[in-house]
């Protein structure tokens, strides 16, 4: 049994009176790709934002590599080795590509970041071509690459990706998933939130299905791909 890296236990998150996340618990082991799939509004993004500290759960805990992150300020979480690529990319559109990457390494010493920039440019040669360009002028796919590159700049142990395929043409979706596989090969553990269940389950070691704020089913990627209920609900047949 491999080491548990992230242990999320009994999260309950509210937006005002709306109970968005109802007792969600799951785990990610070191070296895995784990996916959270589910329909729009199932609570996938809310779960990731709670792990990153942007939202607060009323109960439970978030344990990352043995440390409880539950009460850690959101800006201190990234230095624990946990980075998030947010939904909708959220790159800094008025800053250059390279400045965006620098922001990704905000908590690291300036002398350490040259290597990381080189690594990101190696993964995403497109970004290197556009390094001086303002991020707002990039295409959607390039912005997604930038958002991923920016998150990698913190040298995360665990990378959380929120809907990386959203709004992208199929060929770009393939490319993004190739990159996810590459990063995984390089030793990054991945927690992937996706609406594109087919793609997500085919790369994932394990998956959790979120339905209206709770975890409905769990299993390996293969099992879920073959699960009838999952097929009907998320895989179109």
């Amino acid at each position: 049994m491999s080491e548990t890296m992230l242990k999320v236990d009994n999260l309950n998150v509210y937006y005002g009176n709306i109970h968005a996340i109802k007792g969600v618990s799951f785990e990610v082991n070191r070296g895995e790709i784990v996916t959270l799939i589910g329909a729009n509004g199932a609570g996938k993004t809310t779960t990731l934002q709670t792990i990153s500290g942007l939202l607060r759960s009323r109960t439970g805990s978030v344990e990352f590599m043995g440390e409880n992150l539950f009460h850690v300020a959101p800006h201190k979480i990234v230095s624990h080795g946990l980075a998030q690529v947010p939904e909708g990319r959220r790159v800094f559109t008025q800053m250059s590509v390279e400045e965006n990457l620098e922001m990704g390494a905000y908590t690291r010493a300036k002398s350490e970041i040259a290597d990381s920039i080189a690594y990101v440019y190696e993964q995403f040669p497109r970004l290197k071509e556009r390094r001086r360009q303002v991020a707002g002028t990039l295409s959607g796919g390039e912005q997604q690459m930038l958002a991923m590159g920016r998150a990698l700049m913190s040298k995360p142990q665990l990378l959380m990706l929120d809907e990386p395929s959203m709004g992208l043409a199929p060929i770009l979706v393939e490319q993004i998933f190739d990159i996810i596989r590459n990063l995984h090969k390089d030793g990054v553990t991945i927690l992937l939130v996706e609406q594109n269940a087919q793609m997500a389950l085919s790369v994932a070691d394990r998956g959790y299905v979120l339905e209206v704020g709770s975890i409905a089913t769990t299993g390996t990627g293969m099992e879920l791909l073959e699960n009838d209920a999952v097929r009907r609900a998320y895989l179109g047949g």
Binding site: H75, A83, P86, V91, M103, Y106, K110, A151
Partner: peptide, 24 residues
């Protein structure tokens, strides 16, 4: 400067800035 860049990042997107480790 680093702080200056952080200011620009915060002015665009506080949430994303926090994910980067910037103290808003």
């Amino acid at each position: 400067t680093k702080i200056g860049k952080a200011m620009r990042a915060v002015s665009e997107d506080k949430g994303a800035a926090q994910l980067m480790g910037i103290n808003v």
